[in-house]
C-alpha cells in the first residue's frame, strides 16, 4: 500500500505540469483574444493565386 504515497505525489507533480502549462498559456496572451482564432482557423493555409482577379463576391 505504501506505493500510494509515491503514486499520489507523482500524480500531483504531473498535474502541476498542466497547471504550469495553463499559466504559460495565460501569460502568453492566449486568453486575451478568444474570438479571432475561431475565425482565423477557417481560412485556407495557402490560397491559390487566381488567374483573373475577377471576384466581387455577389454583392
Amino acid at each position: 500500500m505504501s506505493v500510494m504515497f509515491v503514486l499520489i505525489i507523482l500524480s500531483l507533480i504531473f498535474a502541476t505540469g498542466f497547471l504550469a502549462a495553463f499559466i504559460w498559456a495565460v501569460r502568453n496572451g492566449q486568453y486575451s483574444d478568444q474570438y479571432t482564432p475561431s475565425v482565423r482557423i477557417l481560412f485556407d493555409q495557402q490560397t491559390k493565386r487566381r488567374g483573373d482577379a475577377n471576384g466581387n463576391g455577389d454583392i
Binding site: R50, A53, G57, D58
Partner: peptide, 30 residues
Amino acid sequence: KHFCCSGCRIAWQILAESGLCDYYNIDSGL
C-alpha cells in the same frame, strides 16, 4: 472594371498585384 472612386481603384490594384483578390470571395455579401 469600374470603381466608384480612385481610392477603390488603388485598393483593388494593391490587392491584384499581391494576388489577394480572394479577399472578395471570403464573406460574400458583406
